[in-house]
């Protein structure tokens, strides 16, 4: 194990560890995408995964709620825990895991249904609501948390696909929140949005951190610096450096991190 990473881990040892990856190796067929990655995800913090394209940060994110299971040739080894429980253990139900670890994708992907149905879908399939009123309340609360309610309260029955890109992404966040997860994974949630919508989402992420643990993959280093408390830098499938965001951006230990954040690689 790289000594730099060890150094970094000490920095965040005072935080409660919500998720943890240990010696995570991922390969797609013959091609290995991740090499012995160790990351600790602190509770109620935003952890940013940064690095150049193809460095494996999205792959790692998708391991955290086993979205990689859907790819036939993808093979994951190592241990990933959620509240000290191995999520790849045979006893773990992947459906239940994904209810606890929600996900927001790069491109806003609302269902081609009404705004209400988009948010209500999760609670409905998980049987979270006891009555219709209960469900409606859940939808409203989720939309409020996602900062979208005031904009859509008069058109809950209109299709979610009719919203603007930023609204769609917040709808997807509301949809993820509605399932009442512990962790929300965000895979470059702002890459398809304009700067104003991006700013709205970033503010939202900061608010959500109080209740949820957030892991965000981003291409924008400014965004990582703005929203995250901890940052992991990936390069060529390796975790190069992991530490608090302040430390990574002001005093990176590894030369590659230094080069990346100053714009020399990537």
């Amino acid at each position: 194990m790289n000594t730099n990473i060890k150094q970094a881990e000490i920095d965040i040892s005072d935080q409660y560890e919500k998720m943890r990856g240990e010696k995570v190796n991922v390969s797609y067929g013959d091609k290995q995408a991740l090499f012995d990655v160790d990351v600790s995800i602190a509770a109620n913090k935003v952890t940013a995964l940064i690095g150049p394209s193809g460095c494996g940060k999205s792959t790692f994110l998708r391991c955290l709620n086993r979205m990689n299971d859907t790819i036939d040739i993808c093979k994951v080894t190592g241990t990933i825990t959620l509240d000290n429980e191995d999520i790849y253990a045979p006893s773990v139900d992947v459906v239940e895991l994904r209810a606890r670890v929600g996900m927001v994708f790069q491109k806003p992907n609302p269902f081609p249904k009404s705004i209400f149905e988009n948010v209500a879908y999760g609670p409905r399939i998980h049987g979270l609501a006891n009555s219709k009123a209960d469900l409606e309340e859940m939808v409203v609360t989720s939309l409020q948390k996602a900062g979208l309610f005031s904009e859509v309260k008069d058109r809950m029955n209109e299709p979610g696909t009719g919203l603007s890109g930023g609204q769609q992404q917040r709808l997807c966040i509301a949809r993820a929140i509605a399932v009442q997860p512990d962790v929300i994974l965000m895979d470059e949630p702002c890459s398809a949005l304009d700067p104003i919508a991006t700013a709205t989402i970033e503010t939202l992420i900061d608010e959500l951190r109080e209740k949820y643990t957030i892991v965000i993959v981003t291409h924008s280093m400014q965004q990582a610096a703005r929203v995250s408390q901890n940052t992991a830098f990936f390069h060529l499938g390796e975790l190069v450096e992991f530490g608090t965001t302040d430390q990574i951006f002001t005093a990176p230990i590894d030369q590659r991190t230094q080069n990346y954040i100053t714009g020399r690689i990537g």
Binding site: T70, V95, A99, G102, F105, F111, H126, R175, A176
Partner: peptide, 27 residues
């Protein structure tokens, strides 16, 4: 049917069967 719809359904914890019958088949 775009893969993003499948990811969205799986992402909120739908089973594969629910993904197919609730989203993919109707589309």
């Amino acid at each position: 049917v775009p893969p993003s719809i499948r990811s969205a359904a799986l992402g909120v914890g739908a089973s594969k069967m629910q993904m197919v019958s609730h989203h993919v088949l109707p589309l």
